[in-house]
Amino acid sequence: MRISKATKTWVAAFALVASSGAWAGVQVHFDKPDHYSDVPFSTRDREQVLAGLANHFLWLGKSLRPGQELKIEITDIDLAGNEDPARRGAFDVRVMNGRADWPRMRLRYTLEQNGKVIASGNASLSDMSYLQRINRYSRNDSLRYEKKMIDDWFKNTFGVLPQGRSSPVISLQPREVRGRH
């Protein structure tokens, strides 16, 4: 998989916005996205997934304390469900059966307070019960399961409960077809 210049531009733009005070200094970097476990087949959808995830981390960063800077390096992504190549048409279709298709993400992070590292580590995020849990994100948000998983990690790691919701990623619709359990 190749990541286009448009994706790199989006990520760079988000990083630039992140460096402003309004975003509490969040930086998101995608390490070798060509090798991720599961991102959409189409270049357009893949770019929107990466931009949507970066935007969500930036949005969560607004809840950090003043003077804190969070650096996140995403090393792998496995989206909820599985893409079904047989059902591809104008849109990629993800089949969700609730078995071994839960969302997963691996990342490294560093949280600094006024230039001093106060927390860092590697994290493996996953949500095995993603179809059974209450999700505050709209069904129209193609990344609702991933965002819920990230929210939980953010709350458990940094003690910050997200307020409101980040912008939905709706261009991947239709996103899911639920399989039989």
Score class of each variant (00 low, 15 high):
Glu73Ser: 11
Arg106Glu: 11
Ser120Asn: 15
Gly21Thr: 14
Ile170Gly: 03
Asn114Ser: 11
Lys155Ser: 09
Arg2Met: 09
Met1Asp: 10
Glu47His: 13
Leu131Trp: 11
Val95Asp: 05
Glu112Lys: 15
Glu112Thr: 14
Asp31Phe: 15
Leu50Trp: 04
Val169Cys: 08
Leu53Pro: 03
Asp84Glu: 14
Trp102Glu: 13
Gly81Tyr: 05
Gly61Leu: 01
Asp45Ala: 14
Ser171Met: 10
Gln27Phe: 06
Gly98Met: 04
Asp141Pro: 08
Lys148Leu: 15
Ile72Phe: 10
Arg136Gly: 11
Gly115Ile: 08
Arg144Ile: 06
Ala13Asn: 10
Asn156Glu: 09
Arg139Cys: 03
Thr43Tyr: 08
Ser166Lys: 00
Arg106Ile: 02
Pro168Ile: 03
Ile170Thr: 07
Lys71Trp: 07
Gln48Asp: 05
Pro168Leu: 06
Ser42Trp: 12
Pro168Met: 03
Phe57Arg: 05
Leu16Phe: 10
Ser129Asn: 08
Met149Glu: 02
Gly61Val: 01
Arg178Tyr: 13
Arg106Asp: 12
Val117His: 04
Ala100Tyr: 07
Phe14Ile: 12
Pro66Leu: 13
Trp10Glu: 14
Leu172Ile: 08
Leu131Arg: 14
Ile118Gln: 09
Asp45Ile: 01
Ser124Ala: 09
Tyr109Met: 03
Gly159Thr: 02
Ser20Val: 00
Pro40Leu: 02
Asp101Gln: 12
Val93Trp: 04
Pro85Gln: 06
Tyr145Val: 14
Tyr109Gly: 02
His35Gly: 10
Ser4Phe: 11
Pro162Arg: 01
Gln48Phe: 06
Val160Trp: 00
Gly67Trp: 05
Met149Trp: 05
Arg136Lys: 08
Ile170Trp: 00
Thr75Val: 07
Thr75His: 05
Asn156Met: 10
Ser63His: 10
Trp23Ser: 02
Glu176Ser: 12
Ser138Thr: 08
Ala24His: 13
Glu176Gln: 11
Gly179Thr: 04
Ser167Trp: 01
Met1Ile: 04
Gln68Pro: 00
Ile134Lys: 14
Asn135Phe: 12
Lys116Gly: 11
Pro66Lys: 15
Ala6Glu: 08
Lys147Met: 09
Leu143Phe: 10
Asp76Gln: 04
Ala15Asn: 15
Arg88Lys: 13
Arg136Ala: 12
Trp10His: 14
Val95Cys: 11
Gly164Asp: 06
Tyr130Glu: 03
Leu16His: 12
Ile118Cys: 06
Asn55Ser: 15
Met149Ser: 03
Tyr36His: 01
Ile118Pro: 09
